[in-house]
Design a protein around this nucleic acid. Sequence first.
DNA 1: GCCAACGTTGGC
DNA 2: GCCAACGTTGGC
Length: 150
Amino acid sequence: MNYWLMKSEPDVFSIDTLKTKKKSGWDGVRNYQARNYMRDDMKKGDMVLFYHSSCDVPGVAGLAKVLKESHPDPTQFDPKSDYYDPKATKDTPRWFMVEVEFVEKFNVVISLHTLKSIKVLENMPLVQKGSRLSINPVSEVEYKTILELK
DNA sequence: GCCAACGTTGGC
DNA sequence: GCCAACGTTGGC
C-alpha cells in the first residue's frame, strides 16, 4: 500500500464535501506529473492525506482512500466545463483521475505551520518553498508521523 | 530545441 | 493583493 497527499481548495472541494458525497472522482487535474501519479501509481486501497490549500489555515484536513484506479477525467470532454480540453478525445484522452472515498475528517486541521516544525517531515515537497504539485507521494514514516499529530 | 512571455499555484 | 516559483506555450 502507498500513501499520497492531494491538495484541494476547500472553497471548491473540501473534506466536508467529500464526507457528504462519500466518494468522488478527483477531476480537474491539469498537470502532467500529477496526472501520471494518478494514471500510473495510485492503487485501490492507497491512503490519501486530504490537504486544504489557498485558505485560512492550509493543512491536512482528513483522510481519504483510493476507491477506483485510473480512468479518463470526464470534464476534459465537456465544453461547458472549466476543465475542458479541446485537444482531448474519447479515443485519446489526455487527463486521467482516480476516485476517492471519504475515510475521516480530523477534529482540527493539521496546519502547514505545524508540519513545517517537524524534523521528520522536512523532506516533504509540501514544506519546501515553491512546491506547487497538487499530488505527492508520502512515505510511510511521514504518513504515520502526520497521523500522530491529529 | 531554445527561451521569452505568459499563466497558475499557493503561502503570506 | 503580492509575488516567487514553476509549468506551458509558441515563435524562431
